[in-house]
Nucleic acid binder design. Sequence first.
DNA 1: TCAATAGTTAGATAATTATCTAATTAGAGT
DNA 2: ACTCTAATTAGATAATTATCTAACTATTGA
Lengths: 89, 89
Amino acid sequence: MRINTVFEALSHPVRRQILTLLKTGPMSAGELAGHFDLTKPTLSVHFNKLRDAELVAVERRGTSLIYHLNMSILEEALSGLLGKKDQTP
Amino acid sequence: MRINTVFEALSHPVRRQILTLLKTGPMSAGELAGHFDLTKPTLSVHFNKLRDAELVAVERRGTSLIYHLNMSILEEALSGLLGKKDQTP
DNA sequence: TCAATAGTTAGATAATTATCTAATTAGAGT
DNA sequence: ACTCTAATTAGATAATTATCTAACTATTGA
């Protein structure tokens, strides 16, 4: 887990809202994009950053890409910061 | 609590390490700066962002400024993201 | 195989963030 | 008042990040 990548991913409001949306269940890229006033390519970049951080996982179903939330990375990163372990990057 | 400001503050490795250093106890600006290969003005900017986010509090002692960690904001922000409440900015 | 749909990748530009040097403010001691 | 030390603010520049349009890839179904 690259702690730096995780917190960098969490720093953008759109990306945090994507995670919030995914808390209700998996969702396709297009469906997620529909919640924002941004173009699909822009959202695609955000998806990539979340995927790099392993905060989400992707699965293809037909022509759609379904994004799943990966809660555990979130918890790992946060407990790392709160806990005793040194988190120097 | 401005959730956006908090996560923005947490996004930079230097700022996260400042928080980690403060976990061992309060520390002056100069003492903190000694841990990094950056100029004092640069560190000062980082301190400001942490203070804006209320992740640290400052207290003056003589000519020194002593920084204290404010753990509770950290926990608030993180539980906000993990929990049920909508965190739309 | 052609067309339609879903999504991504490439490349350019605008906006934001990090960093430095130089100058300034604030307090303590002489 | 003067000087020293600690730290900040201002202003400029470099580096990074976000966003868009245009073009491309992949899958499905007629």
